[in-house]
């Protein structure tokens, strides 16, 4: 058993993949808790899809790919809220429009430039965890640090704002800035996750650990901790599955996450039938 665990770690590429998988597992699972309670799961999806054109443009003008992706994600959130505020269009519809438009632009741009450059659209769509570089490990670790420290420092404000935005605003919290800050954390998180699972499956990394934890524990910081544990375990398990069975790493991680959610759901159902009177008293 131990050798089964240790064997892959003799390879530097597996050490790097594991580092990224764990970092991404932590921040996706933590940030996803805010998206879940604010019913913004779709926004996580929109942000991740819309970073593609930023990537392509960054590639063309030779700036850091993460910077381009981050800017594109922020521009798309801005457009979503602009459409929603300036017209009767509902927020989810605005997200649908912006998400698909940006995604299409990204695919088009990358398809055009990938002929001359050595990049592969599939790697952005589905991730390529086993081929991360040392620089990417460093950047991801840095992003993870920023996200985790921000959440710890702003914990009580973000909790108040997430639960009762009007109450928080009435009490004097700068709710617009908190919302913007949260969106920047989501954007950073999806940018960092692109390598691990790709933009299509990052939604699962954000939301599945959060809802799994939500079924198990009742307090927000417990939900967040349980979510992080679930995210990290799935990342590690998925990576090993991908190594031993030669599976694509992103989907392998997401399959483990889905499996854990299914178990949590079954447990939740069983609890309900066992103690039907334990709810509203």
């Amino acid at each position: 058993m131990l050798s089964w665990i240790l064997e892959p770690l003799q390879f530097a590429f597996m050490q790097r993949s594991l580092a990224i998988a764990v970092a991404v597992g932590i921040i996706c699972a933590a940030v996803g808790c805010y998206l879940m309670v604010q019913r913004l799961a779709l926004l996580g999806d929109a942000l991740s899809h819309s970073l593609l054109p930023g990537l392509a443009i960054a590639y063309i003008i030779r700036i850091h790919l993460y910077v381009g992706a981050f800017i594109a994600a922020l521009v798309s959130t801005y457009l979503i809220s602009l459409i929603h505020r300036r017209s009767p269009v509902k927020e989810d519809a605005a997200m649908g429009v912006v998400l698909s438009g940006f995604f299409a632009a990204g695919i088009t741009l990358i398809t055009v430039i990938q002929k001359d450059n050595k990049i592969d659209l599939a790697h952005f769509l589905f991730g390529n965890l086993l081929a991360v570089t040392a620089d990417e490990v460093r950047d991801t670790a840095l992003i993870a640090l920023v996200v985790v420290v921000s959440i710890i420092l702003l914990y009580k404000e973000l909790l108040f704002f997430s639960f009762d935005p009007q109450g928080a605003e009435a009490a004097g919290l700068p709710t617009q800035r908190l919302h913007l800050g949260l969106m920047m954390l989501v954007a950073l998180t999806v940018v960092a996750s692109m390598k691990a699972v790709g933009v299509i499956l990052v939604l699962a990394m954000l939301i599945t650990p959060a809802v799994t934890a939500y079924l198990l524990v009742p307090r927000f910081h417990h939900v967040m901790l349980a979510s992080v544990v679930c995210g990290v375990c799935s990342s590690i398990a998925g990576l090993y599955l991908s190594y031993y069975f030669n599976l694509p790493s992103g989907p392998a991680i997401v399959l483990v996450l889905s499996g854990i959610f299914a178990i949590a759901f079954a447990w939740h159902q069983w609890q309900k039938t066992r103690a039907p009177s334990a709810t509203i008293f």
């Binding site: 309670v37 009580k156 404000e157 909790l159 108040f160 997430s162 639960f163 009762d164 009007q166 109450g167 928080a168 009490a171 004097g172 919290l173 939500y214 524990v217 009742p218 307090r219 927000f220 417990h222 939900v223």
Partner: peptide, 22 residues
């Protein structure tokens, strides 16, 4: 107008009243 399915407890909600003064 509040989300009563939010994962939080009585104690945590009451403490929200102290966030700004803290």
């Amino acid at each position: 107008h509040l989300d009563w399915t939010f994962p939080t407890t009585v104690w945590d909600v009451v403490l929200m009243g102290r966030v700004v003064s803290t």
